Structure formats: structure tokens, C-alpha cells
Simulated assay, not measured.
Amino acid sequence: MPDLPQLDRNTLPIRVCVGIMLINRDGLVWVGRRRPKWAAPHHGDIWQMPQGGIEKFEPPRIAALRELREETGVTNVEVVGEHPQWLSYELPEGLLGIALKGRYRGQRQKWFAMRFLGDDSEIDISPKEGTKAEFDTWKWAPLQDVPELIVPFKRALYQRLTGDFAHLAQPVTEESPI
């Protein structure tokens, strides 16, 4: 079998997408577990917050609400924050041509913080008609634990994001606004 050609990082584009930090009334953050084929045995379980691509001419905020609905079934939210910058990560060499369907070298993401106003029964990660499920399970996690759940090549982005959104991931009390 001939050797496969080496991918040149510079020939693969960066995928433009959105990410969502979904925060419940207890100040916990929603994470879902993905099991992409490329993960095992190198990375084990992969947890992440909802994220996805922006469609042509779609505003990022609308994309974030759509992706959240598609991946989690959640629609009962309030947008409480938007990161002022686009945050990026690049795949490590060993995942080029494999992760992100082999078509991208990384992602440039606009992140939104959203307060979940519903209850857990609203969350539905089962596959929808014509799509596959993004996650096989999910949980609420303390904000400070989220970066350690993430694959190492995304960890710096998640550390930045959790630090910048920490003031939003507080429990809601009767005295505090949602």
C-alpha cells in the first residue's frame, strides 16, 4: 500500500463556528460526551460544550441558538453573554485530515453564555430525523472542572472561556436576576 501524502496544515481552512456555555440555575455548566472514532485510545472520553458551524449569511447569535436546539433540544434560554473576541484552536498534527471530518485544521469560534430557564426534561440528545446524535450522554459540571474534561488541544481555549464567563456561571437566587 502506498504511503498517504502528508497534509499541509496551510492548505486546510479554519472552520468558523459558534460555541455555547449553557448555565443552569445552580451555576453548573452543561457538557456532553462525544465518542468520535479518532479519540480512542488516545483521548478516551471527550466532553465538550455545544458548538457547531455557522451557515451562510447566518448571524452568530442565531447560529448559537440553532446549534443548541439541534444538539441538546434546549430552546428555553436567555443569552446572558457574548465573548468579545473570536477564540481559535488548531488540531494537533496527528489529527489533521481525521478530526473535523478531515476538512479543517481547526476552528474559529464565537462563544455565547446562555442561562437555561427550563428543566432537565427539556434536554434531548437523541438523534433527530436525518441527523446523528452529537453526544451519547451529558451532565452538569462545575465551571472550574470543565477545562479538565476537554481534549488537551482545546484546553487553553476552554480555560480562557471559563475565566472570562466565570461571573455569569453563578447560582441564581431569589434575590438575583436570571
Rank of each mutant, 00 (worst) to 15 (best):
G44R: 05
V77C: 12
G52H: 07
G130R: 15
N76Y: 04
P84S: 10
R66I: 02
E70P: 05
G102A: 05
G97W: 04
H83G: 00
R33T: 04
V74W: 00
Q85M: 12
T75I: 08
K101T: 08
I46D: 01
L96G: 02
F57N: 14
R66P: 07
E71R: 00
Q109W: 06
Y104Q: 01
S126F: 10
D45W: 07
H83Q: 04
I125V: 09
P60Q: 14
E93T: 15
G130A: 15
E70F: 08
G53L: 02
G44Y: 10
R105F: 08
A39Q: 01
E134F: 06
I125E: 00
E71A: 02
D124I: 13
K37C: 11
R108H: 13
A133S: 12
W38P: 03
E129S: 15
Q107C: 10
R105A: 06
I54Q: 01
L117D: 06
P127R: 08
N76P: 04
T72N: 07
R35N: 11
Y104G: 01
G118W: 04
A39W: 02
G97I: 08
F112Y: 10
Q107R: 07
E90D: 03
W47S: 00
G97D: 07
G44W: 07
R34K: 15
Q109P: 06
I62W: 15
